[in-house]
């Protein structure tokens, strides 16, 4: 057991898989010699060398296209898109190429690759370097979409993503890179498509993802201490495949549902989950589900403004308290 940062967990996860499988290669902008702009890939170039860990030009289409070509022909590439906002300049691969090739070719084509990308706000970078875009990917048939919230999940889910035969978009949260967590020694392998109940509770279910997970946990503690409201916090972890059984099971127990989403409100991941719960567990609910999201605006840069728009622990506490007291 060791305490490591989320940032170090990224490098450890990649290293674990590269050491295990010579077909795993890794490339992206500034990822090799510089160790990544977020320092999440430090040491990989030194450990695995320039054939397997490569710096690329600023060419997001070439990065993702090359990952696909390598994956189709037998490698297991990990490609980095530095900021998830940049997915917009290579969205063809995410939306049209990776996820549709197998289907269009009636199963001839494979695409086992991982796109790692820095997602989310908190760094005061403004509207084009701070977005949470997991919902952009969630809506595309053929992709898998993962967003871990802790160092141990980073390693385990990254390993699962690399070993998965489908294209996986792996969202790392930039504001979690410095967060520390306990990580066991040895190989860590998790399972895609599994949510995790992080805090059991009986009064309400709070679903959260990535940076929203620690905020939801802190809110649950406050709600218990101040209002004696006992919340169950579920880390969704994987949007596709989606662990609806864990979610429906939790709602069946608590009868109340809250989602905490960093993505802007319209078509955020919580909307899909709420619709599933309403369709399939309507009579389990004691009240309408409530979505706590970033409002439907571009993200501002100034700290005072950015802090206002992201769901905070306080906003979660207030929303849950008011809803349960009404």
């Amino acid at each position: 057991m060791a305490e490591i940062t989320y940032r170090d967990a990224v490098a450890r996860g990649i290293a674990q898989e590269m050491a295990r499988d010579p077909d795993v290669i890794f490339f992206g902008e500034d990822v090799a010699k510089a160790g990544g702009v977020f320092k999440a890939t430090v040491g990989l170039y030194e450990q695995f060398g320039p054939r397997r860990v490569r710096d690329t030009p600023i060419s997001e289409q070439a990065i993702l296209g090359a990952a696909m070509g390598a994956a189709m022909t037998g490698l297991k590439p990990i490609a980095e898109i530095m900021f998830s906002d940049f997915i917009a300049v290579c969205f063809d691969y995410i939306a049209n190429e990776f996820p549709k090739s197998r289907y269009m070719t009636n199963g001839q084509t494979k695409c086992p690759l991982v796109v790692r990308t820095g997602n989310g706000a908190g760094s005061r970078f403004g509207a084009q370097h701070s977005q949470s875009v997991e919902n952009w990917c969630m809506m595309i048939p053929g992709l898998k979409v993962v967003a871990p919230s802790s160092p141990v999940d980073v390693i385990g889910l990254l390993a699962a993503a690399v070993r998965d035969p489908d294209p996986v978009i792996f969202f790392e949260h930039k504001s979690l890179y410095a967060v520390k967590g306990e990580v066991p020694d040895g190989e860590i392998l998790d399972t895609l498509g599994t949510a995790k109940v992080l805090r059991p509770g009986k009064d309400a279910t709070i679903l959260a993802l990535a940076l929203m997970v620690p905020r939801a946990l802190a809110a649950a503690e406050q709600l218990k201490a101040q209002y004696n409201i006992d919340c169950e916090v579920v880390d969704v972890r994987s949007l596709v495949p989606l662990d609806t059984q864990t979610i429906l099971g939790s709602v069946g127990k608590t009868h109340r549902l809250f989602t905490v989403e960093e993505n802007p409100r319209l078509c955020g991941w919580g909307a899909e989950i709420v619709s599933i719960v309403v369709e399939e567990a309507f009579y389990d609910l004691d009240a309408p589900p409530v979505r706590i999201t970033t409002p439907h605006i571009p993200l501002p840069a100034a700290d005072i403004l950015e802090d206002m728009v992201l769901p905070t622990t306080e906003r979660i506490v207030e929303t849950v308290r008011k809803s349960l007291n009404s």
């Binding site: 296209g65 090359a66 070509g69 189709m72 022909t73």
Partner: peptide, 21 residues
């Protein structure tokens, strides 16, 4: 290895296959 209907998409993909080789 496929026919690609989004203009330009397959040039990087061909690079990836060549990178594997």
């Amino acid at each position: 290895m496929g026919s690609y209907a989004i203009i330009g998409a397959h040039l990087p993909i061909a690079c990836g296959a060549a990178l594997r080789a």
